[in-house]
Structures are given as C-alpha cells and as structure tokens.
Amino acid sequence: MKQNFFKITSSNRFQAVIQFLRKELAWKAGEPLHTYINLAFSPAPDDTVSNLFKSFATDGHLIVNYSTTAAWG
C-alpha cells in the first residue's frame, strides 16, 4: 500500500476496517484476508474501532496487520 496511516471515525466497527483494507488491496471477495491487532489477535468484526483504540493503541495509533494465511497461533 502506498500509505500506511489512515484515519477512521471511531464509532465504526472493525468490520469497516476489514472492508476498507479489502478495497485498498483490491482483494477478491472470496479470498481469505486475516486481520490482526498488534501482531497478536483477530478482533471480533463487531468490536468498535473506538473500543480497540482505547485498549490497544500504540503511540496514538491502532496497529492493524493483515495476512493472507492465518498467523500468530
């Protein structure tokens, strides 16, 4: 991706982040895309960005990792 930092309204669900990533990467609908916070776990898609930010932000950013295969245990 050209850019690494994005802004999102905090009331969005994490599902919106997943959909955004898929669009940004031009990911095909059926292809799996795994998303993680802090290289550690996949949040539930109905968690809000605001809740995740409050609990897991690093230096003012919520770090989201993505992977084509399941990773991190």
Binding site: I37, A40, F41, S42, P43, A44, S55, A70, W72, G73
Partner: peptide, 25 residues
C-alpha cells in the same frame, strides 16, 4: 472456533500485554 480463539487471545492481551499464554499452548 476462529472467533472464539480470537476472543481468548484478545482477553490474554488485555490481561498481560501479550498473547504468550495462549500461543504457548
């Protein structure tokens, strides 16, 4: 199952700041 494991790891991360207890299983 994947969603459950995700929640288990998220809880682990909340408690200890990492998911070593779960990934160490």
């Amino acid at each position: 199952k994947q969603a459950f494991m995700g929640q288990l790891k998220e809880a682990d991360f909340i408690r200890w700041g990492n998911t070593k207890r779960i990934t160490g299983l």
